[in-house]
Amino acid sequence: MFDRLIEKFTQAPEATRATNLKEWADSIPETIRIKDIAPRCGCRAVGVIQKIRIDPRTGTGSVEVTLDDGTGRLLARWLGRSKLNGIALGKGLEVEATAGDHAGEDLVVLNPSYRLMPGPDRG
């Protein structure tokens, strides 16, 4: 218990948040952590919505949602649409698709099927 206390006081707030997010993600069955996803493999991941990017330009229209599960970030991109109902920061989102490659730092999945869920109550 004392160890936990020390850890709590010395941990950077971002690290605390990551721990909380991972704990939450672990509690959702049949999902894989983002850092464990291998490129070009089918996966079902879950994360809290960290960033939303809407691009209304015709032709390139897309919605991108960045998910964070405490282990890494996953970029889910839906092409050809500029709106995704029910998407809001801090909510939880489960996505299922074949993982693409890394775009910069984040892993990308294209047009995944998705399911909204309540976000974590911590983090």
Partner: peptide, 14 residues
């Protein structure tokens, strides 16, 4: 953003 027809991306970050 979409209603106003702004022809550029919008990023909303937590």
């Amino acid at each position: 953003w979409l209603e106003h027809g702004i022809p550029h991306p919008l990023e909303i970050e937590d």
